[in-house]
Amino acid sequence: MISDRVASNLKAEFRRNLLPKIGLVVLTAILLMALFAPVLATHNPNTTGYFDDGTSYPPMGTTAESYEVVDGERQSIEVEPSSEHLLGTNNVGQDVFSRLLYGARTSLLVGTLGTGIAVIMGVPFGLISGYFGGRIDDAMMRVADVMLAFPSLVLALALVGVFGSMTVSIPDPFVAAGLAEGMPSSTPLPGTVTLVVGLVTWVWFARVARGEAMAIRNEEYVTAARSLGASDATILFKHVLPNSLTPVIVLATIQVASVILLESSLSFLGFSGTTLSWGYEIQQGQEYLRQNWWISTIPGVGIVLAVISINLLGDWLRDSLDPNIEGEGGGAA
């Protein structure tokens, strides 16, 4: 599937450019943070009430303005950062740094699982549509057009609204193994959101797979295989599918980034089902922008770094594999 030439192309592009290296380093760091969140976190991300006086701690190196009621009068006070909270606390006194780590888990889980669902739905659909062509293709493409006519965010909102959040609790191995005292014993995965992002983005994979199938369908070796009596299923699996994998891989990479953005938008709008999400955190902080700027700002930096690093790797794959992908993928900021 991945020939030596492709591999050496990948290596050459990687060596030549700085950007994929940055992408790889940043993404690896985020992956490690997400994976070892229970070990790295300084506090349980869900524990509230670390504040004594109704104020939130600012991140290290900054101070914040707040108010205190003294003798029935509001007085301006200055809040110093607490050495216990690396990136400060949020409006309910939760540790921002710990929530950032756990938020990475949600983003990456939803991003990869959601994209996986989209691949599983979209690729077979597109391959069948493109391979058989004719009426089958026409009918299937109309279905895809219908999907495209729904803005993915809008459809996702409607679906989550209908089905609720269906949170799935994934047990945390570190806590189970006793390596992380006091951390939540499971990570909530927003089930509907994961399914929904897959449901609303599969059509991009279908389009790419269809294009590849149409191109390969008429290749001579496929015609030859057919004349030798190979069944359509065999041809699809043995010839068409492997050949369409390159553009699918590139698209999937870019789609993980889009899905992370989509998930954060859904959480921001209050449709996620977990509070351990960067988007949710940003929404929480919006009201406190005037006093506690960091609550919204820091998780956003997390999203941007994650998405940029994935996009950098996606660009690298695209440049070295050079598939024909029309435009960009879904994208739902």
């Binding site: 980034a257 938008s265 922008l289 919204s296 956003g300 941007v304 998405v307």
Partner: peptide, 22 residues
Amino acid sequence: SLVGISTPNFWLGIMLILLLAV
């Protein structure tokens, strides 16, 4: 353009508010 396609627009909006409005 890389940063632009990678920034969620709700966050961008909030940051613009923080900087240019607040």
